[in-house]
Design a protein around this nucleic acid. Structure first.
Lengths: 337, 337
DNA sequence: AAAATATGCTTAAACGTTTAAGTAAACAAG
DNA sequence: CTTGTTTACTTAAACGTTTAAGCATATTTT
């Protein structure tokens, strides 16, 4: 790679010190009382040599990198991809760059990534934490690294977190299914310690209880999503009293589930109503468009960046918990029976 | 953020110079003939103080950042998300970090991003270039920045590019539709100057010509994908001799198209066979799973990283063009009629 | 006319590393 | 007992910035 022009090159060409060049090119001419003519000359030379400041040198000096690290749980899931996108946009709007990595729901990978990003001197982190990463989070807190969690959160940890009210969203979705005449509503969720998922389960259970219905909760492991989602559906539909509706806790579960429902030739919503958390193009395309809970991705991403920059600039005084409203988008798959 | 421990801190504690510490912690003790005891002591102190090297300082010294920049066309599209993922994995395997941005198919944004990434002293770039970005590419070449293009390419430019044989893939897909008895095969593609898309069109046209069928090509603009895809379908299905099959040039087009096909109540594949480029979860979920052209994302991503690192390490002698085979995944939506 | 101030620049140190070159002491070889 | 070699370290410069402090010279104030 061709060597880039430095302040020194410009200084040489202009016959002045690098300090002067620096003052001019960072618009501190006033403060540094640089002569008008010289300023003009320096700028012209900078232009001619196509000077671009070396961000690394600047960072070393300033101690800031104007970079934030983003760790998502799985970048191949469009939900996280979209979060990444809004975060990148919002960061850029604030003159920050994003370095990112995907933990792929893996604790070691997540730990590695945190280290890599911190070594690159990111000014702060935005995390979609993996199951079991409390220790990593606590460690960050101890090191006083500015960071915020997004999407997933740990209610017992005193750290800044951005999310939705998973309990309420779930409760509303189930209420909707009850109102539309469904009497045997199953749910398929992950077997996990992740709080946000368990809140979704709780919303389901309480809504059913409040309506005098029994819970039919089935769990699948993330690592065995295909087989265990299928098993779950088999169990829900088996027996004398099969489910007449199913609520999926995430888009990935719904997609696996719907594939199987298709294979079984089960008609949605006639035989089985379907509602899912999260969004997916596949939901639009299904012959009976799927009712789903839309998470306000843009607001979440923007809030994460805003809170993080706040922490970076003012030091983390007090954690900020932001809960944004989600929306139930009602479509054909949960039509009144 | 708490100040991290530096070589100086360790040196102080050990009562030696920073140089010695550096030699030990970069495993150059042999070469620098550091005493065994002292080496041990230094390592112990480093451990105790949880020393993590400052990557920025190292970069400034070495001129390398061990970072590669990635610019994708649209991170919210899972196709690009998956490319990003494999690139990040492969880069990490080679001890490189990825900084990324999404150009969102926008020339100015792309130009901005290139600048930001270069200012951060990335060692090289991987680009999914936007339409009309030839000038930016040429500029990079002139600056002798190591870079490779992936997915999209400019055949007339002497730069390294990774892609599939779009012409052949398209030709095969159409041949398959012909073999399965389709006689009026339409195509919906973007109105664009992007070479890879136009190769897909050419594959379609030639395959039809070789089989004595007439072209029914419809174009939509990326910026008006919804309306114009619908128009295109209307046109294909109108008239005395409506299409009996349609070939979509990308997954986004297919998804828009299929939504409309659903709305119209057209039965796939009985009334209309469907084949698409690219993959999508929605294709699996469609009541009649969609036949599609699977791009070897992992191989592409790995190749991009490999070629880029090659260029970074050895200087770009001669551009490398890599063409990887794609695969036609045949399913129900193109069943024999 | 001396003192104060303004103007336009330079010097030098610092950020945290790396690494070639230097040095002092211990030891071996002639 | 000089000379040479080895061992174990230190010094110092460098990467490209930023910025406080310094220093002439010119101009204004008293």
């Amino acid at each position: 790679m061709k060597k880039k022009t430095s302040l020194k090159d410009i200084a040489q060409e202009a016959g002045v010190s690098t300090a002067l060049v620096s003052y001019v090119l960072t618009n501190k001419e006033e403060k540094a009382r640089v002569g008008q003519e010289m300023a003009k000359k320096i700028r012209k030379i900078a232009q001619k040599l196509n000077y671009q400041p070396n961000h690394i040198a600047r960072s070393l000096k300033s101690g800031r990198s104007d970079t934030i690290g983003l760790i998502v749980a799985d970048i191949s899931n469009p939900f996280f991809g979209n979060i990444a996108r809004t975060i990148e946009d919002e960061a850029k709007r604030n003159n920050y760059t994003v370095i990112f990595g995907s933990s792929d729901e893996n604790l070691d990978k997540s730990s590695d990534l945190i280290n890599v990003l911190l070594n690159r001197q990111v000014d702060g982190l935005i995390l979609i934490p993996t199951e079991g990463s409390e220790q990593q989070i606590k460690q960050l807190r101890k090191q006083q690294v500015p960071f915020v969690l997004i999407d997933r959160y740990f209610p017992q940890l005193p750290v800044s977190q951005i999310g939705i009210n998973n309990f309420q969203a779930s409760y509303n979705a189930i209420s909707h299914l009850v109102k539309t005449g469904h009497q045997r509503i199953g749910m398929i969720a992950y077997k996990t310690a992740l709080y946000h998922i368990n809140e979704r389960k709780r919303g389901y259970t309480e809504a059913l209880a409040d309506n005098g219905q029994n819970s039919m909760m089935k769990l699948a492991r993330y690592s065995h999503i295909r087989e265990e989602t299928r098993q779950a559906i088999d169990q829900l539909l088996r027996g004398r009293k099969p489910a007449d509706a199913v609520f999926f806790a995430t888009n990935s579960l719904a997609i696996e589930g719907l594939k199987y429902i298709n294979e079984l030739g089960i008609k949605v919503p006639e035989e089985l109503a379907v509602v899912s958390f999260d969004e997916s193009e596949a939901f639009d395309l299904f012959y009976s468009p799927i009712t789903f809970i839309r998470q306000p991705i843009q607001e979440m991403g923007n809030a994460a960046v805003r809170v993080l920059l706040e922490h970076i600039r003012n030091g983390e005084k007090t954690p900020e918990n932001i809960c944004i409203n989600s929306e139930l988008v009602i479509r054909q798959s949960s039509r009144r029976r």
